[in-house]
């Protein structure tokens, strides 16, 4: 018989290295003579799309488009150390470093422009749509490229180097008391499953995921992280297990170590909650790891909802489900006697 159930899972995740470990990111910025710019950072884009995020941050700050920004990363001869692409820290931490570097380059640019426009303070200058000019006076502006080029003739260059360090402190080794991570990210997911009581097979029909991201710097990438996390969570809950015999891996192959395929992953509805994190770039916090956390709980709780068995050892393979169903039946029989 096929039975359906729904399960809820919540999770939290302290982002960053944590526990007082120096969590530093760095970036170099150069604004070019044609008004485009380059960002150099050591942060590796492992496929999650951090380079695009840095381009968006720099473009936003300079009144440009993302394609006006060249992001070059992760070459130790050319880029500054930005720590590891891990701990859900690159959007937050290196994002902050890029933002600080762009702002620093911008300070000298705005000062130069203020002087050019006879404006007593850089506060009166704005960058927008590829132009630099006086706030509120559209007649006094010029293409950013012209301004940067003129500045070069006078020996002024708009380049910068900045770093950003996340806050965290070590906990007390005896009591574990302290503030080890910052910021924390939250999320919850609901899974609907169908359990075949004859075969023990669990089919995940749908996952709804809601994650706290501070600010979604790129909603497409947020959705991508969530769906990828859900798929890995389903693999963790139902499929994946390294089988060891005396330390030797019995299934070192993708034919025997099974990860989810397009047929194992359900319809995923991804939502995000935006409540700005004051210390993050444009209010953002990271999402990479939190995206996969609630899935395992949602699936395991949904199995219980469907067939009334509590799986306590992962993965919830058909064998484990059938065993749990048999144990439950036996228990019921004993009670009946």
């Amino acid at each position: 018989m096929k039975k359906r159930g729904i399960g809820l899972g919540c999770a939290w995740y302290g982002t960053g290295y944590g526990n007082g470990f120096p969590d530093v990111s760095s970036a170099f910025v150069e604004i070019h003579d044609d008004g485009s710019a380059t960002v150099l950072t050591g942060a590796v884009d492992v496929g999650q799309g951090s380079n695009s995020i840095y381009a968006q941050i720099a473009a936003e700050e300079l009144g440009l488009q993302a394609q006006d920004i060249c992001v070059y990363s992760a070459d130790t001869d050319a880029t500054p150390d930005s720590g590891t692409t891990a701990a859900t820290r690159q959007t937050y931490n290196t994002g902050n470093a890029v933002l600080r570097a762009v702002r620093q380059a911008k300070v000298s640019l705005l000062d130069y422009a203020a002087h050019k426009f006879s404006c007593p303070t850089a506060e009166g200058i704005e960058l927008s749509g590829g132009y630099i000019g006086v706030k509120g006076d559209p007649s006094r502006r010029m293409p950013l490229a012209d301004m940067v080029f003129q500045a070069r003739l006078q020996g002024e260059r708009f380049i910068s180097a900045e770093s950003s360090t996340a806050r965290s402190t070590p906990v007390d080794p005896e009591t574990g008391q302290g503030a080890p991570y910052w910021p924390y990210a939250f999320g919850c997911q609901v899974a609907e499953v169908e359990v075949d009581t004859e075969t023990g097979l669990v089919h995940v029909l749908k996952v709804v995921a809601v994650h706290d991201v501070g600010k979604a710097l790129n909603p497409t990438q947020v959705e991508g992280q969530i769906a990828g996390g859900v798929a890995q969570g389903i693999g963790y809950a139902l499929l994946e297990e390294l089988e060891l015999h005396e330390g030797k891996i019995k299934n070192p192959a993708l034919s025997s170590y099974l990860i989810p395929t397009a047929l194992d992953v359900p319809n995923i509805e991804a939502f995000f909650v935006e409540e700005a994190e004051a210390t993050g770039p444009f209010g953002a916090k990271g999402l990479g790891e939190p995206a996969m956390l609630p899935t395992v709980a949602a699936v395991i709780n949904a199995i219980d909802d469907a067939v009334g068995v509590r799986i306590t050892s992962l993965p919830a393979t058909p064998e484990r489900i059938l065993q749990a169903l048999a144990d439950k039946k036996e228990e019921a029989n004993l009670k009946g006697e």
Binding site: G224, A227, G228, V230, L254, P260, T261, A262, L263, V265
Partner: peptide, 12 residues
């Protein structure tokens, strides 16, 4: 389904 992806969750 014959093509594995570990990043995207296939959704997109």
């Amino acid at each position: 389904s014959g093509n594995l992806c570990r990043c995207t969750g296939y959704d997109k």
